[in-house]
Design a protein around this nucleic acid. Structure first.
Lengths: 251, 251
DNA sequence: CGTCGTCTTGAGCAACTTCAATAGTAGTGG
DNA sequence: CCACTACTATTGAAGTTGCTCAAGACGACG
């Protein structure tokens, strides 16, 4: 099943088998993206939303000089732009990071889906609220932490999110973010991101394999402290909430 | 009608008269808050959501040293924590800024409301997505702008939002934010916020009445340029989108 | 084998913080 | 009415963090 991860990561127990199949059936088609390929441009009207089967995406807003602020990262099991379903246009651009495979859902199909199954409307709503919660944490990250803390926090978030969808073996970190990406997501320059990574390396918190270009997390606990990372905002037990919150409409 | 502003600001034409009345009828009671009074604590389970009739609220996350990051501001016509309806607990604290009057909606009443009127579920979803869009813009603001730009952007956003709900006469700015609040919302120190305001004053962009403690915006256009403020993310014409997006379910 | 993207490092500079002190204003109680 | 307190605004001086500009190294890829 294509949307298998959705069950795993964002609401492990919140979906019935029948509902999961209904979501799968609502897929219009599947597309593949090259690394760094642009998918959606700010402001343009959209008629479909995307769900990540494999790969990773970023959402970003450019400043007046053309420099990029990454405002969100999406991993397998995430909707990329479900908010475009009610909003019809996006306030940011969307790019692939790695090569990715996305399921395409036409909005009219989604509309039918939730007309028939109000419970799925709640599930989708919840999913977009999870994005909002991560946004808030990013505001905190940028507003209150220094460069080290910002990088550490971001790493912790990605680790935890990949873990929640079962895409993390050991502590290796195959996430395709360059140091420039980390910088653009953390409100610092690439130069400074590099120096920050060196610091984290020297302290023995992580390592960077020169050959495979893969990051290894050595001391996640220290990273969490440095980034003041408390994973509650990821609502990892969200499934439970959904179950109780919507117990009256389970399927 | 108590929720009159909601129609005005966030979806001017998206609600039928009958729907607006149904929302009003779903109000459990109305509460008043003192300035700076705490309403909700991060993590605690909640069974109701609040809607601002009058006043203003802030949502914030504290860092390890107890310093506060404001992650969102709410004005009349906004839901304060509608996301707690699907999520059941919040990832941040909620405080009043000014003395405020809030309508209280018990979640079970909201549930009944949207069970009977699926269209209202979309309206509420849209409302929380608007918060997410503002969050993203704040990430941009903190990540890409310097102190001057951050303050300018925040002022522009507040002006525009108050304007959208008809709570802005002239360019006076009765919003009850202290310089410390601006600092806590902008990721800078209070000292530096003060110096930044002085700069903006000296440049003739705004003024601050020493007696009434009221801010006057003199040159909004320049503030917009300084803050790279483009109001599209506020979806001011959201009403239109809602109308067309959900044309199939107008009431 | 050259080119490109990424990582790395240095030196000087600007923005912002920290710590500290002063002053105005509003509210409170005597 | 005044003293007292609390909060907010204001300013100075010194210190840090992070930025800018510049250059070099390294691996991947065609």
């Amino acid at each position: 099943m294509i949307t298998e991860l959705y069950l795993k990561g964002r609401l492990r127990h919140g979906l019935s088998q029948e509902e999961a199949e209904a979501i799968d059936d609502a897929i219009d088609h599947v597309i593949t993206l090259e690394p760094r390929e642009k998918l959606v441009t700010r402001g343009e009207k959209v008629e479909q939303s995307y769900y990540i089967i494999d790969g990773s995406m970023m959402r970003c807003i450019d400043d007046a000089r053309g420099f990029r602020q990454i405002v969100g990262l999406q991993v397998p099991g995430d909707w990329v732009d479900l908010h475009s379903f009610p909003m019809k246009r996006l306030d940011h651009d969307v790019h692939a990071l790695a090569a990715s495979r996305l399921a395409v859902f036409r909005h009219e199909r989604l509309q039918k889906l939730i007309d028939d199954r109000p419970h799925l409307a709640r599930i989708m709503w919840f999913s977009t609220l999870l994005d909002a919660a991560m946004h808030r944490e990013w505001i905190f990250r940028l507003g209150r932490l220094n460069a080290e803390g910002r990088i550490a926090h971001l790493i912790c978030e990605l680790l935890e999110r990949l873990r929640l969808v079962g895409r993390l073996e050991e502590s290796s970190f195959p996430f395709p973010l360059t140091q420039q990406d980390f910088a653009e997501a953390s409100g610092i320059t690439t130069t400074h991101a590099n120096r920050t990574f060196r610091l984290l390396r020297e302290r023995g918190l992580l390592d960077h394999d020169e050959n495979t270009r893969e990051m290894t997390i050595i001391d996640e606990q220290s990273l969490r402290e440095l980034g003041e990372f408390k994973p509650d905002y990821l609502y990892g037990e969200g499934a439970l909430h959904l179950n109780t919150a919507f117990a009256d409409k389970p399927a």
